[in-house]
Amino acid sequence: MKHTLAVLVENKPGVLTHISGLISRRAFNIESIAAGYTEEPDMTRITIVVEADDKYELEQVVNQLSKLIDVIKIIDLTGQDSVHRELALIKVKAIPENRTELIGIVEIFRAHIVDVNKETMIIELTGEEMKIDAMCELLKDYGIIEIVRTGKVAMCRGPKAAKEV
């Protein structure tokens, strides 16, 4: 089962190395990892999507990551009421006769066209993983040139910050 972990870490050099090193050394199955600044300048938030076979495996991931000195807190957002989003940029072939159809698809998915030229366009799409997968699947027929995805970020609903949970 997939779990989404919010990992709050000190914003210090080497933290990402420590985390990625640990993940590879302990052979954890990581699906995505996304890091960025937060509301506190000395804190970075890393969202990790991890595949764990059972509760023991997940417990190991959390405990081992928690052991890293620069890891402040880990919150498992999987069971919680939370918003999960990922952003994707998709460069797709857009010959003139396909453009109308493509614009239609973009509208249905509430995506945006952020760049167009004679042959291609870049579509920006935000949403849950499945939505992005679905759109990519549809666009395949038109010829996808490249895809870049940020990896998932997530946040609990309700008034509290993850660090207070």
Binding site: P13, G14, T17, H18, G21, L22, L68, I69
Partner: peptide, 14 residues
């Protein structure tokens, strides 16, 4: 050496 010793130290610094 910081990179090299990351998996074999409790913590390390540069």
């Amino acid at each position: 050496i910081r990179g090299i010793t990351t998996p074999i130290t409790k913590h390390n610094y540069l």
